[in-house]
Design a binder for these strands. Structure first.
Length: 646
DNA sequence: TCCGGCTCAG
């Protein structure tokens, strides 16, 4: 009875109690307002079924009621109810209401019912900007970015003006499109939209500009991203983070860490958030900078960011990939909550160390905990099998993917399988797998086969794989160098020359070897040089001294990896300039006896460097850790953890 | 009244 006298605003506050018409105050019973209250109340309590039941009896539902009903359908992920509610929207004459149309479009995209979303959009005569934006947002969400640009043009032709939201969606749609229609076209579109953004005066808008930074980053254009970033009149944590992530993801981890420092030192009041931390931890992972990483871990703990799953996941991965697998495991074990990414981080951590059996163990533990494996879980565990040569286990896991877990093998999984078979010298079987594939093999799969051919010196199969690779990936230097290496191993020098001519004729950019090492919390990079750089004089002197010593122990330079047809002497000198050797010598000069040396390299470790590092680890009784693109090599007492099989 | 930017596993 009290409610009877309450003013309207207070009555609204009481809505949550009106879960049934009988609970309404008398003056609201059997009135449209009362029924609306009941439906809204039920939606808020999550009882969608009952709400819809009332809806069928309600003569006059209003816009707010429908808004809540639509929202509930998204939350409950119920397509059936969604269609019922939509039907009622139409029956009640709201089908031309732009507000509800926006909500309906959002709902249908949320439910993955793209065609229904389109129908709502097409049915609206007077579309306002919200309706357009809902369409763009939804299309990006469901990965149909390729349909955005055409609609954006149509909107412009119809005289519609964009706002900052429109630009962020349209920009993101270019990324979604990147994989589908080609890289260059996508990038051109970003530049085109960039022009629109500037012409319409959005150059100072934080959201739009940050999206631009991110989108350029996703295209790998660090320069363009930097241009936008440094041109921003006002920056906040998010824009800084976008730029840091851009560097971290695009092979410039060093710059990422520098930017992080700059952000903390030079800006006032900008506090890194969890996303910033994830990005900079990722950069440290790339650099094998575990000391930096430890400092960041401390910061994470002080700020209570260790409750944020992605942050801890990034830490687990950082320790594991930097060689501190045990610490990674400890962080993992202490997690209160784990998602599939946490598990995958741990699985791939074991994999990169060549501990396939441990990786399988963790994978099974994950299943036991009721976590549904993701496609990445299989990439990680199959990769781990491959590193330890666990052929049967790997094959069984591959077969179980679809059968037991409903995960369809993608090219990456096939690449793992081909690698697994190839490394085990089952090259014909590997080739058969490719032949029987239901999907287009693509460069990763052919690349796996070519890599295996290198291990087992199979020139014939390598030639057929490389022919395909040169066709589908004409710009990838790695393929040419791999093939040249295979010819060099077989001492087919004319063919080596032919490949080198091909590289020149096609104007392919050579990949420079680069190694990083952390010394006293500073990070140093070394670039491989064909000519010895006098700047590295001290480093080279130490290196030569070491080489003289290990030659006495039986080291013979592995000059076959040098693809120049030149004198043995010149070849040896070329080997000396490899970045990992320079980094190693630098590390030895700047560390204490007994300290582990950690180096990371952007390419595959060459046979000669591998050999030299083995000898040096024995000669100086040092543990040396080298992470190349594929795995971690732990050198101890003249032996490498990879078993010379990488 | 309706919508935004940056992150972890391969």
């Amino acid at each position: 009875m009290l409610v009877y006298h309450l003013p309207k605003t207070l009555t609204r506050l009481c809505i949550r109690f009106f879960t049934h018409p009988s609970r309404l105050p008398p003056h609201l019973q059997h009135t449209p307002t009362g029924s609306n209250y009941c439906i809204q109340s039920l939606c808020q309590q999550g009882d969608l079924k009952q709400a819809i039941h009332l809806l069928t009896q309600e003569p006059n539902p209003n816009i707010q009621t429908f808004e809540l009903l639509i929202h509930s359908c998204s939350i409950k992920n119920s397509s059936f109810d969604a269609r019922t509610v939509h039907k009622h929207v139409i029956d009640n004459g709201f089908d031309q209401n732009p507000f509800l149309a926006t909500k309906l479009i959002g709902m249908y995209f949320e439910l993955g019912l793209v065609e229904s979303a389109w129908q709502v959009f097409d049915g609206i005569c007077n579309r306002n900007l919200f309706v357009w934006n809902a369409l763009f947002k939804g299309l990006v969400k469901v990965g149909r970015g390729d349909e955005v640009l055409g609609m954006y043009r149509r909107m412009n032709e119809g005289g519609g003006l964009s706002d900052s939201f429109t630009y962020t969606y349209v920009l993101k749609s270019c990324v979604a499109e990147k994989t589908g229609e080609g890289f260059v076209e996508g990038l051109d579109r970003v530049k085109e939209i960039h022009g629109h953004v500037l012409r319409h005066g959005y150059w100072g808008n934080l959201h739009v500009m940050t999206t631009l930074v991110d989108v350029y980053a996703k295209f790998g254009c660090v320069e363009c991203a930097g241009f936008v970033f440094y041109g921003m009149p006002v920056k906040n944590v998010v824009s800084w983070t976008a730029m840091i992530a851009c560097c971290a993801k695009n092979g410039k981890p060093f710059e990422a860490v520098e930017l992080f420092r700059e952000m903390i030192v030079e800006t006032h009041g900008l506090v890194p958030n969890s996303v910033t931390m994830v990005s900079v931890i990722q950069a440290c992972t790339a650099l094998c900078a575990v000391e930096q990483g430890r400092l960041l871990h401390g910061y994470v703990l002080r700020k209570g960011l260790d409750l944020v799953l992605p942050v801890v996941n990034a830490l687990v991965s950082m320790y594991a990939r930097c060689g501190d697998l045990d610490i990674g495991r400890r962080v993992f074990d202490q997690m209160k909550r784990r998602d599939v990414v946490s598990w995958n981080s741990m699985i791939s951590g074991y994999g990169i160390h060549g501990l396939g059996k441990k990786a399988i163990e963790v994978f099974e533990e994950m299943l036991h905990c009721g976590i549904q494996p993701s496609p990445v879980s299989f990439v990680s565990v199959l990769g781990a099998c491959s590193h330890e040569g666990l052929l049967e286990e790997g094959k069984n896991l591959f077969e179980s993917m679809e059968r037991d877990h409903g995960v369809y093998p993608s090219v990456k999984h096939y690449a793992c399988l081909v690698d697994l078979l190839g490394r085990a010298n089952r090259l014909d079987e590997a080739a058969k797998v490719i032949e029987d594939m239901q999907i287009e093999p693509g460069p990763t799969v052919w690349g796996s086969l070519l890599g295996s051919c290198r291990i087992h010196c199979n020139v014939e199969l390598a030639e057929s794989a490389s022919r395909r690779l040169f066709e589908i990936e004409p710009e990838n230097f790695g393929n040419y160098s791999l093939m040249a290496e295979i010819y060099a191993q077989a001492e087919m020098w004319t063919e080596v020359k032919r490949i080198k001519n091909l590289i020149e004729a096609r104007g392919i950019q050579k990949l420079t070897g680069c190694s990083w090492i952390e010394v006293e919390k500073g990070i140093y990079s070394f670039i491989s040089a064909d000519e010895l750089n006098p700047k590295n004089e001290v480093v080279l002197a130490l290196l030569m001294k070491l080489l003289t010593e290990i030659k006495k122990m039986g080291y013979v330079p592995h000059t076959k990896v040098v693809l120049y047809d030149t004198s043995e002497e010149k070849k040896e000198s070329n080997l000396l300039g490899h970045s990992e050797k320079l980094a190693l010598a630098f590390g030895l000069m700047n560390s204490n006896e007994g300290e582990t040396i950690r180096i990371t390299k952007n390419l595959r470790l060459c046979e000669d460097c591998h050999l030299v590092t083995k000898f040096i680890s024995k000669f100086l009784d040092r543990e040396i850790l080298v992470r190349d693109v594929n795995r971690i090599h732990r050198f101890r007492d003249g032996v490498c953890s990879c078993g010379d099989y990488w």
